[in-house]
């Protein structure tokens, strides 16, 4: 952990990580569908033009091409906005990356509503659910720049399909360069005994705010960074349930099918405790500034703190 207030968008970290990965792994190739300046894959394109493939506005074709590259021993990172990578090209990802168990990676930037002004058409609130349900798919939502870089390298080491979701807006740097990310391992970033906030991506910062608010009210909240949504760290969820007795999940995604659902699947089967889910409540987003939207959809630190108090209230009922 570091105290620096520095902010970096995870998509920037994704773009930089691809360049570093490309330097050490000649099998890595990158594809983009006319969004390379936004997904930051243009940095890789500038450094390794022969290993970058501009596919035009054709996400379905991009995923299929990535599949063919993966079937030939390459490690393709197919990159687009989350809404297109997961939704527009869903069947291609399912049939090739999924059913074919192909070693391809999907770099999905601009996840969630912090995309902001582009509005609901570009705000992906279902992508984690869509990817999570594909057998064998690994789903990662990194919280900050260091974790994103680690996730990119971990994805390249992992044999099989991986979906990495990054964000458009700058988010606080949480981890220093020594941080080590492991697929499927939750990372505790604040300890507490009264309730656990399990979060991912941009919601980690809001969760830390919530923990501060709660501590002022005498409630000690544990914060768990669940960057890997699938496979979820069930042991960490069960430990949180047993040790704190109540859970709040916080994700920049629909509360249906994403982190909140994944946590509830674990608790309901292994250790039922009250769970409150913070996220988009079965509606589409709209245009606006990221902060305005987070307030409007009840996804602030205060909202998480309130949810934590509700969860604690429900213990034993």
């Amino acid at each position: 952990m570091t105290d620096t207030p520095r902010k970096i968008a995870t998509r920037d970290a994704y773009g930089k990580a691809l360049v570093r990965l490309g330097e050490v792994n000649p099998d890595v190739v990158v594809l983009d569908a006319d969004l390379s300046k936004s997904t930051r894959t243009h940095w890789f394109a500038e450094k390794f033009p022969e290993r970058f493939f501009q596919m035009g506005v054709a996400e379905a074709d991009m995923m299929g091409t990535a599949a063919g590259l993966a079937a030939s021993g390459k490690i393709p990172f197919a990159s687009s906005f989350a809404i297109f990578a997961s939704g527009r090209a869903y069947d291609q990802v399912r049939q090739t990356a999924g059913y074919g168990k192909l070693n391809m990676k999907i770099g999905a930037s601009h996840g969630g509503i912090t995309v902001g002004e582009d509005g609901a058409s570009h705000q992906s609130i279902e992508d984690v659910a869509l990817m999570r349900v594909i057998p064998g798919m690994t789903v990662i939502v990194p919280a900050d720049a260091a974790e994103t870089e680690q996730a990119v390298f971990a994805a390249a080491r992992h044999e099989g399909p991986v979906y990495i979701r990054t964000g458009r807006s700058a988010v606080p740097v949480l981890f220093d360069d020594g941080y080590e990310f492991e697929i499927g391992k939750a990372v505790p970033i604040r300890d507490g005994k009264d309730v656990t906030i399990i979060a991912c991506g941009v919601m980690i910062s809001a969760s830390l705010e919530a923990a501060e608010i709660l501590s002022e009210r005498g409630v000690l909240a544990r914060v768990l960074n669940m960057a890997t949504i699938k496979p979820i760290d069930a042991d960490a969820v069960v430990a949180a349930a047993k040790e704190t007795g109540a859970i709040v999940t916080a994700e920049e995604h629909s509360i249906i099918g994403g982190l909140g659902s994944a946590v509830c699947e674990v608790t309901s089967e292994l250790c039922p405790v009250p769970v409150e889910r913070i996220g988009i409540r079965d509606v589409f987003g709209q245009s606006g500034k990221p902060d305005e939207l987070m307030k409007a959809y009840c996804m602030t630190g205060e909202d998480i703190a309130q949810a934590a108090l509700r969860a604690i209230e429900r213990i034993g009922t």
Partner: peptide, 25 residues
């Protein structure tokens, strides 16, 4: 069997990827 197919329209994209990989290598 070089590529899983059945959902129509996808094989040519995959073949492109294979052809690109062959050229790279």
């Amino acid at each position: 069997v070089e590529m899983s197919t059945g959902s129509l329209g996808q094989g040519l994209s995959a073949a492109n990827g294979m052809a690109i990989a062959a050229k790279l290598d």
